[in-house]
Design a protein around this nucleic acid. Structure first.
Lengths: 206, 206
DNA sequence: CTATTGTGACATTTTCTCTTGTCAAATGCA
DNA sequence: TGCATTTGACAAGAGAAAATGTCACAATAG
């Protein structure tokens, strides 16, 4: 095997080990040594691919964020019978991702915060991407809402916060509430909004 | 001055120094030595009042949380002419608190997360208190919504997430958007909800 | 086969930070 | 005033983790 390729493999192993360490023990309590142990590598290989622990967190976070947002976008484009169905389905896959791998939830909602200014910026950028996805999902599910109009309001940001806090509380609660219960409530709200928009064609004010 | 009282004063100085350190440099990057320096005390006095840095964070967080929730409750009880006005006024004081002291915002939304299991529990408890406040505010502003009904839904949790993420983004953005712009949008949404509830006396389904 | 490069295990250095201890000066109290 | 307690400044040990270095061995290419 080529050297460059093996370097890549080691890097990938470190990212996977980082996901495990940060997602279970936590960022603060994981040492570089621990992570290398999980990856089955010695410490020097850490410095082969990363300068410091924070850089690994950045790589892990980027991978997780890309994963959930990709499944989100893949879902939002699919046609749906009703707006409520579209909203529910998108949210289901998003939450299902976190349910399948609680380490991702922990990194997305907890470990990423308060580490450094640079990481805060990455968090902010990722939040913005989620807000964009939500704005797009809303404008698709509810054609009465224009995407441009949504972009200028705080509504998608607020909804992103709602989605995130519900997910974070759900994770802190060890996923006690069945996912379907949460989705049923969301579905009811979406149906309400749908009915409301149909009786108020003037839409939502900016 | 009595000894016990001076001990109290030193403790208060440490909490204030903790607010400054955690709220600007951050929890991870603040050493006990730094904090004592800010407080104008030597390290031994840290151990007089706290066992470890985490305990100081807990004290600082508790003070900040109590402060914002108290102003929130004080406001929510006041009578208002319209529901939209009630919502806007409560939110204004809540956000104004954070605008006046950005260190509080940083601690509330960033520094508190991912520190330890114990701190996570305190965060969860504080979130629950905010959710309760919001549920109460909603049931007061919109009598059509019963408090008991609200408690069983994810709506207040979602709204708490919305309030928090909007605040967190706002803080990360160095409060670029004028507070009044945000409040105007919230007011518009509240008016919409008010109008909707008046045409749908059956209320929101559980 | 042999020289070069990559690898793995381990040692070492360095840098922090926590935590406890010492002691003289200051302060409060009888 | 004289005694006891409190205080402030600093020292120093303990421990952990980061970051770098060494070296024998394995793998591979020519």
């Amino acid at each position: 095997m080529e050297a460059g390729l093996r370097t890549e493999n080691r890097r990938a192993a470190l990212v996977e080990a980082g996901l495990e360490a940060f997602g279970t023990v936590g960022f603060a309590k994981s040492s570089i040594k621990d992570i290398c142990g999980l990856a089955g590598l010695t410490q020097r290989y850490f410095y082969e691919s990363f300068k410091k622990k924070e850089d690994l967190l950045s790589a892990v976070y980027g991978q997780v964020v890309n994963g959930v947002l990709e499944t989100g976008w893949a879902n939002v484009e699919k046609p749906a019978k009703t707006p409520a169905q579209a909203v529910t389905r998108t949210l289901r896959t998003y939450y299902q991702d976190l349910l399948d791998d609680p380490r991702k939830a922990r990194i997305l909602y907890f470990e990423i915060l308060g580490v450094s200014g640079r990481i805060d910026q990455e968090y902010q950028a990722a939040t913005k991407r989620l807000v964009d996805l939500i704005a797009h999902a809303l404008s698709r599910a509810f054609p009465a809402l224009s995407a441009e109009q949504l972009q200028r309001t705080i509504v998608p940001t607020g909804l992103a916060g709602a989605v995130n806090l519900i997910a974070a509380n759900w994770a802190l609660d060890s996923y006690a509430t069945p996912l379907e219960d949460i989705l049923l409530q969301v579905q009811a709200l979406a149906q309400l909004l749908d009915g409301f928009l149909k009786t108020s064609p003037e839409g939502v004010p900016a």
